[in-house]
């Protein structure tokens, strides 16, 4: 992931997307041009109805773009079959969702192993375990591998989800409101994790409606009415770690804000 920084991971050219048919057609995207380079940390923002979700579904290969072109790591997504898109999601994409979307009553380790089960290459059991443990270690949860989601805090669950997203070495992480269900301090922790991963060279695309989250990114894209209305680098990018430390100073009790046992 760290190689060839600057190469385009995502290239959207005049992407349209229309839902419905006949008189009730709704244009969600009306010609989006977007180039995302390796190593970027991008925030996609916009009010609801701006086409944000549609763009995310297309970027995530969950939906096909209408007219226009989408090259993911050089692969033309528009012409791929359902199964080929599934393979692409498996190998090139890591999803992080607002409500974590972990499999309940399944250990953290097995949740992280899950994407590898669908990998087109055969992966041995031993390798499966090794890579899952490695991914968990990367998000700082090596000691929680055997825990089930309901035994983990919201922040920990999101970390498991991030480990799951990382395990197949994706071209980029696609995070949809990853801090939407988390308290302030835990949000900083998760953003810190994203920043660290980004520092290691991972491309991160963050879809959010919280302006403060976009300040941790390197670039902000704002959508409105299905078009990109702003696309600029973030001036004065903030460090989530510093903000977390500042938060801890302001709330010296530190309490257990980040350790509620039941989340979601």
């Amino acid at each position: 992931m760290t190689d060839q920084a600057g190469e385009a991971v995502v290239a959207l050219e005049g992407v349209h997307k229309t839902y419905g048919s006949g008189g009730s057609r709704v244009a969600a995207l009306r010609g989006v041009d977007l180039m995302i380079r390796r190593g970027e940390m991008l925030a996609v923002m916009g009010p609801s109805g701006s086409g944000k979700s549609t763009l995310m579904n297309i970027l995530g290969c969950l939906d096909r773009p209408g007219p226009g072109r989408y090259l993911l790591d050089g692969v033309d997504v528009a012409r791929l079959s359902r199964d080929k898109r599934a393979d692409l999601r498996n190998r090139k994409l890591g999803f992080v969702f607002q409500d974590f979307h972990l499999l309940s009553r399944t250990s953290a380790l097995e949740n992280v192993e899950m994407p590898m089960l669908y990998h087109p290459d055969r992966i041995t059991r031993r390798e499966l375990r090794r890579r899952a443990e490695e991914a968990l270690e990367r998000v700082g949860l090596a000691d929680r591998a055997r825990h089930h989601p309901n035994q983990l805090s919201g922040g920990q669950q999101q970390r498991v989800a991030i480990a799951r997203a990382l395990v197949n070495n994706p071209a980029f992480l696609l995070a949809d409101e990853p801090t939407g269900n988390l308290d302030t301090r835990t949000s900083f922790e998760i953003m810190d994790l994203f920043q660290e991963l980004n520092k290691e060279g991972l491309t991160v695309i963050l879809v959010t409606h919280e302006p403060e989250m976009s300040r941790f990114c390197s670039r902000v894209v704002v959508l409105r009415d299905g078009r990109v209305v702003r696309d600029e680098p973030v001036a004065g990018r903030q460090s989530a770690k510093e903000l977390r430390d500042a938060f801890d100073r302001e709330h010296p009790v530190g309490e257990t804000l980040s350790e509620p046992s039941e989340a979601s």
Binding site: D83, N90, H101, Y118
Partner: peptide, 16 residues
């Protein structure tokens, strides 16, 4: 349904 969605999102084919 959600489990199916998650599995599909991370790359499960329909046949899986």
């Amino acid at each position: 349904t959600r489990e199916i969605g998650i599995r599909m999102a991370v790359g499960a084919h329909g046949k899986h």
